[in-house]
């Protein structure tokens, strides 16, 4: 029973990371119906940007007290901003031209962008895993016999906090309204005076910034990262987005936590080598049997 809760906590923390990445997938898909394949690599970039910023701040290990908040805050904001800019660039350079080119051409392009980013990161930081400083104190809180680390608390708090912020942003700001209008009917949105290009760029910025945040979190959590990290994590986060119902923010969150928990339990019960197989099987099964996801609505085919 003890192990069960330990795995549950582990899975929830992992799920928090997936949820943050999944939000970006779901926002971009919601607005331009593109599976932004390069999103996972933007997340890896987030880890590397964080690493660079931490280096500049002179952080190489545990930080305590108020300084922790300052260092973490600066790193998160920096990495998120940089990733957001990368996201805008990707959209501008690779996707915008193909906005009316059907579904497959942009998807193929996105795969290409992903490969290019991976190669760039491989050249930048080398082909092997890179150590990431253990920023958070290794304090462990004992909650009813289950150990929860400060780090795990931070991950979950960050994920849920971001989600709430995003919900507010999408439902209560002008940009959010523009985003929803564009997602629903691009032409009508144009007629209402919404700048489509700016709205889509902003969506990419926000989604990529969240991936950057996730990149920091996962670096701090695993204390290592490598250039190919985003492929697997991206695919799992995409699975999370699909499971929750793509285009649906709360769904991405729910999906992220579910996938994290499922992966954690699969690793425990079946062994680490089966965790990927389990997650991808869920992806295939969800798409086949409930393509709208847990919280999504089935949309009829347009004639």
């Amino acid at each position: 029973m003890h192990e069960f809760f330990a795995q549950l906590v582990n899975g929830i923390a992992l799920g928090g990371i997936y949820a943050l990445i999944a939000l970006g997938y779901t926002m971009v898909y919601g607005i331009i119906e593109l599976i932004n394949f390069a999103h996972g690599d933007v997340y890896t970039l987030g880890s590397f940007f964080s690493l660079t910023i931490l280096g500049a701040l002179g952080v190489s290990g545990e930080v305590r007290g108020p300084l922790l908040i300052v260092d973490v805050g600066v790193t998160i904001i920096g990495a998120a901003m940089l990733c957001g800019i990368v996201g805008i660039l990707i959209e501008r350079l690779a996707y915008r031209r193909l906005r009316f080119a059907g579904r497959l051409a942009p998807l193929i392009t996105a795969i290409g962008v992903s490969f290019i980013l991976e190669n760039v990161m491989q050249v930048w930081r080398g082909p092997s895993p890179v150590a990431f400083p253990a920023v958070f104190p290794t304090h462990i809180y004992n909650v009813g016999g289950v150990g929860i680390s400060l780090l795990q608390l931070a991950v979950v708090t960050l994920a849920i906090g971001t989600m709430l912020l995003l919900e507010f942003f999408v439902h209560h700001t002008r940009f959010g309204q523009a985003m929803r209008a564009t997602a629903q009917d691009r032409e009508a949105a144009t007629l209402m005076g919404i700048d489509i290009n700016r709205t889509i760029a902003l969506t990419f910025f926000v989604g990529s910034a969240l991936a950057g945040l996730a990149g920091f979190v996962s670096g701090a959590y695993y204390q290592s990262t490598w250039f190919f990290n985003g492929f697997g994590a991206g695919l799992k986060a995409f699975t999370a987005a699909v499971l929750g119902g793509i285009g649906n923010l709360a769904g991405a969150m729910l999906g992220g936590f579910l996938i994290g928990i499922i992966e954690s339990f699969a690793t425990w019960k079946l062994g680490g080598q089966w965790s990927n197989v389990t997650v991808f099987t869920i992806l295939v099964l969800t798409l086949v049997f409930r393509p709208a996801g847990l919280l999504g609505e089935v949309t009829p085919e347009k004639v």
């Binding site: 599976i35 998807l107 197989v277 992806l283 798409l287 393509p291």
Partner: peptide, 24 residues
Amino acid sequence: PTLRLRGDYLAIVTLGFGEIVPQV
């Protein structure tokens, strides 16, 4: 089971399958 899916979903399902097979 999968060929009824939309093009981009099909692509992702096949990708998942492509990951599962070598892993298995």
